[in-house]
């Protein structure tokens, strides 16, 4: 029994955080498929994007590293965490903002034409 607990603790300390990213991703995908409301679909898409960003940021971590702001006279790579995932994910966050904005605009258009944003009612009506 203690063996299992030890291995579990080892796993959680080593790669446990990937589990969290995976769970977030699964929640997002499940919601995007199963939710009938388009607003909820957009929110689930955001959750999925956050999980991807989270996954990338975990790659940048280093034990004993500090923020990627260069201090005086310390130029060794061990002293700082990896700046590349941060730079990439900064732009990913901005793009997720753009997709959410366009999604909201489309949602208002759908509400105008069909009078609802529930998927069941829209497919039941079958157009205008």
């Amino acid at each position: 029994m203690t063996d299992i607990i030890d291995r579990l603790e080892f796993f959680l300390a080593d790669r446990g955080i990937y589990m969290l990213a995976l769970i977030l991703f699964a929640v997002g995908i499940y919601g995007m498929i199963a939710c009938g409301n388009y607003m909820k679909k957009i929110m689930c898409m955001n959750i999925m994007q956050v999980s991807i960003i989270f996954f990338f940021l975990t790659f940048g971590q280093k034990e004993g590293g500090t923020l990627p702001i260069a201090l005086e006279n310390i130029f060794s790579a061990e002293a700082y965490i990896n700046p590349v995932p941060h730079a990439l994910m900064l732009t990913a966050i901005v793009v997720s903002l753009g997709t959410t904005g366009v999604g909201l605009a489309l949602l208002m258009k759908i509400k105008d034409i069909y009078g609802t944003i529930e998927e069941e009612e829209i497919t039941g009506k079958g157009g205008k």
């Binding site: 940048g60 280093k62 260069a70 060794s76 790579a77 700046p83 590349v84």
Partner: peptide, 30 residues
């Protein structure tokens, strides 16, 4: 998590960290 010698932390990132201040005079490496 936190290992120093992973592929993501090795080649490009090392160059950026060690040359950023000298190349671009920007202390914020990001």
């Amino acid at each position: 998590i936190g290992a120093q010698d992973t592929p993501a932390n090795s080649y490009l990132s090392e160059y950026y960290i060690s040359h950023a201040v000298e190349d671009t005079a920007s202390h914020n490496i990001v």
